[in-house]
Design a protein around this nucleic acid. Sequence first.
DNA 1: CCAGAATTAGGACGGTTGACCTAATTCTGA
DNA 2: TCAGAATTAGGTCAACCGTCCTAATTCTGG
Lengths: 192, 192
Amino acid sequence: MAGNSTRGQIVEAADELFYSHGFGQTSFADIAAAVQISRGNFYYHFRTKDEILDAVIDKRLADRETLLAKWDETSDDVLRRIECFVKIVVVNQAKIMAFGCPVGTLTAELAKLDHPSRERANSIMALFRDWLTRQFEELGCKENAAENALHVLGWSQGVATLAQAFKDEAFVQREVAQILAWVDEAIPESAG
Amino acid sequence: MAGNSTRGQIVEAADELFYSHGFGQTSFADIAAAVQISRGNFYYHFRTKDEILDAVIDKRLADRETLLAKWDETSDDVLRRIECFVKIVVVNQAKIMAFGCPVGTLTAELAKLDHPSRERANSIMALFRDWLTRQFEELGCKENAAENALHVLGWSQGVATLAQAFKDEAFVQREVAQILAWVDEAIPESAG
DNA sequence: CCAGAATTAGGACGGTTGACCTAATTCTGA
DNA sequence: TCAGAATTAGGTCAACCGTCCTAATTCTGG
């Protein structure tokens, strides 16, 4: 499962190709060529394209879980943790401007394909939603923690979509600042 | 160019198929089958897949221009016009929950394909942006009309993305109400 | 050292794709 | 009416797709 194993390399290459070119437009040959292995070797590790997709989704889920867990560990300030999330769109600005959000675009593509793994892909989005919900709960939001989480998540998705369409760095900076300001205002009075 | 001509029927079917299944996953045969014509007839009207895409983009551009022009004509209340735009996501809720926003998802897909018509697809998004900018200017926003336009457009895109992922009607209703409330607050004091 | 498992290489398959062609049919205007 | 243009039908093509197979090679434990 490590990144230097053949299987790991395949999943890593597939992950990037699915992101940069889309799942449907990435062929077995594309991935095999990226890893520089034969198609037969490829077939030994993954018998169908759907199996690769599932492995990629697993990797993306694990990667995001690791990232969120790291934030949970390294910072006991809730606002700072939420800030880390919101700023993903700035940290990964170049890639997002080129290919959009990896989670949002995969979700959209699999929906159009009516793909069996559609729900599994959505669970990455749900991972963010649930993590954000926990942050807002910790922030003191009682009933509307889930609503706030969806708000921030949706807002971020919108920023990513327009970032890709218009490549407007100032827009991204502005919106991120606005989201953070909104989060500040979302702190209940009882907290603070 | 009319909808009942063969060419018009092809473009209409392609428009819907590109939306519901994606451009890359829609084949010549799919479109021909939807219109119930032979592949040869199809080839007479469109020699390449890219030609169909361009025609679909033209149709979408024209459709949106017509829609925006209708709003401009039928209502001289700027707030009401912006409301019409924001509520697209409610009016088309069912389709958006199934396939996302037609404009946003096409933009995202063509970016991944690095398709020549990518910029033309983006111009549909730009059409919305520019129209919204004009509305905010008319609302009295001097310098930040363009920023407000991008804000509302991006917000709507985010709502569409999450609507597709989570199929949460209440979320859509909530966000639309929030956007409208935000627009109200965006009115400069000199106006009102 | 060697047997057997794990891994890799690369050919082959049926099906589909976008693209192209020719022939038949229908429409249109002089 | 009829010649020519416009349109439709359907076959064909090479290339590529995902999938599957067998044979060669490398790794591993006893």
